[in-house]
Design a binder for these strands. Structure first.
Lengths: 193, 193
DNA sequence: GATCTATCTTTTCACTGTAAAGATTCGTCG
DNA sequence: CGACGAATCTTTACAGTGAAAAGATAGATC
């Protein structure tokens, strides 16, 4: 019987790896035009599938962004645990900024809970893992009820990353400046470890 | 002749203060449901006018958000110049956070240039005024090529505000914690003025 | 009072997200 | 090998959106 397919892709009917492809295309589309202009239909066209294919995999647009944020938290946890051993607080802060600049679309979406299904199971699990990886070596540096210092450190690197991504701060070398900036907070704290 | 109006508002045909009303409604709508779910038509209905009325005043949706961001920069400049005299660096940082929490919709939009007509004249002018008001007393505290300290201070308060607004940090008393957090960066810098 | 301009409405169009139902392929078990 | 169920993708349809164009009304100016 003759195929009635409009999108008669010569390869296969089943894409095989569509979910991952869609996530990657979403990240690059957001990096180009921002999350506000992200279109499910344009995304589908970009991946070479029909417009309802993304909805099948992610439920809805928020589900797509939830999956992207989950992936982001996983990558962040991985990035943070990568400098777990030798590096001090500053190195960990720089790694945070490095992640934000390397995965700007993920980073942006991760901190806009209104775009997500914020109570999604995998999302909250990945988020908890990332939080755990983040707080390693921070709360322990200045112990006691002084976790305000941890909030300060997080705020500093998060703010710097946000300002750079928004274009409010335009450094020559972001990671280099991140190191300097983080140094202003840490001062003797890193030495007293 | 009988009026053909569908929206036969008993008051006046001309609203009289529609632009300001739309800006206020926009701010509260974003505060409730986020900027992604902001609808020009719903906004118009909420203000009791036809769907094309907002477009007349702001050109398009980006124009509306540009006007909101401009208003935000003006309010920020005002808030920062309010603590210009007596207060030190910490007070200025707290004022920044206070503004962000008091005007979350403005603050959010101000740092998402993709949503705006970023080269708009009034926007860039208001932004420059705010930047000027921000850098007062920061670059001068630690002079020389050490404006990296200014970036650090800005990053700290901006990051803290962002994290609180996104729900990533949930303090009992945000302004109190902001003061403590800012204290970790400033340390002796404020004393040496 | 007439005319010009600012403000607002109506209508229309292409595009969006998403729901529902159908088509195709894959995996699995007989 | 064959059949059947499940997973994957397509088609179609619908209400809602931003924006453009043209018309209606009110206010201002002379």
């Amino acid at each position: 019987m003759k195929s009635l397919l409009r999108y008669d892709r010569t390869v296969t009917y089943h894409h095989g790896d569509l979910r991952r492809t869609l996530l990657a295309e979403t990240a690059s589309a957001i990096a180009e035009d921002g999350v506000a202009k992200l279109s499910m239909r344009a995304l589908a066209k970009r991946a070479g599938v029909s417009n309802a294919a993304p909805t099948y995999h992610f439920g809805d647009k928020s589900g797509l962004l939830t999956a992207l944020a989950t992936e982001g938290y996983d990558r962040l946890a991985e990035a943070m645990s990568g400098v777990d051993e030798g590096g001090g607080l500053i190195d960990r802060g720089v790694a945070y900024v490095e992640f934000a600049l390397a995965c700007p679309s993920h980073f942006t979406v991760m901190f806009q809970p209104r775009l997500l299904h914020d109570d999604d199971g995998e999302l909250t699990a990945a988020r908890q893992r990332a939080w755990a990886a983040l707080s390693v070596g921070v709360a322990t540096t200045r112990s006691g009820p002084d976790s305000d210092f941890g909030v300060a450190a997080w705020s500093l690197v998060h703010g710097y990353a946000t300002l750079v991504l928004s274009g409010a701060v335009e450094p020559e070398d972001a990671l280099r400046q991140a190191r300097i900036v983080a140094g202003h907070l840490v001062e003797g704290a890193d030495r007293s470890r």
